[in-house]
Simulated scan of single mutants.
Amino acid sequence: FPDAIKPEASEAGDVLDDLRASDESLDWFFISPAGGFGSFAPGEETGTYRVGGEILLVDDEGTSFISGADFGRAVADEITTPRHRRARFTVAY
């Protein structure tokens, strides 16, 4: 795990722990993007993405990527059509 992002990842893990410990009345979801997601790799919008569980999604070559636009689409889709109440899930191509 790259040292440069450990503090941010650790903080996100703490947030997820807090959400999981919250009262059942709190409705939340937590999306973990693909490994190749970020401002360093904006990518092109495809309009599609895959949804996984707790494990990082990779393709047949072991690549894990999603564009900012498609990650945003995944967030908007979950808000408009909830499928992961009180759960973490992953998205990638």
Rank of each mutant, 00 (worst) to 15 (best):
F1S: 05
F1N: 07
F1A: 05
D3A: 11
D3P: 15
D3K: 08
A4G: 06
K6M: 03
K6R: 14
K6T: 14
K6H: 08
P7N: 05
P7M: 01
P7R: 08
A9N: 15
S10Y: 10
S10D: 15
E11P: 05
G13F: 00
D14W: 00
V15L: 09
V15C: 10
L16V: 10
D17T: 12
D17Y: 02
D17G: 11
A21I: 04
A21C: 09
S22F: 01
E24Y: 09
E24A: 13
S25M: 10
L26G: 13
D27V: 14
D27C: 13
W28H: 01
W28Q: 02
W28R: 01
F29K: 07
F30A: 12
I31R: 01
S32L: 00
G35R: 03
G35M: 01
G36V: 04
G43I: 01
E44F: 11
E44C: 08
E45L: 02
E45H: 12
T46E: 11
T46V: 09
G47H: 13
G47C: 14
T48C: 04
T48Q: 10
Y49P: 06
Y49R: 03
R50S: 08
R50M: 02
V51D: 02
V51T: 04
V51F: 04
V51E: 01
G52D: 15
E54Y: 13
I55E: 13
L56V: 14
D59G: 03
D59V: 05
D60M: 00
D60R: 09
D60I: 00
S64L: 11
S64G: 15
F65P: 02
S67K: 02
S67I: 03
S67P: 05
G68C: 04
A69Y: 09
G72E: 10
G72I: 04
G72T: 12
R73G: 02
A74I: 07
A74D: 12
V75R: 01
A76P: 09
A76D: 08
A76Q: 09
D77M: 10
D77N: 13
I79P: 10
I79N: 10
T80P: 15
P82C: 10
P82F: 02
H84K: 09
R85G: 01
R85H: 03
R86D: 07
A87F: 03
R88K: 15
R88F: 00
F89A: 14
V91W: 00
A92N: 05
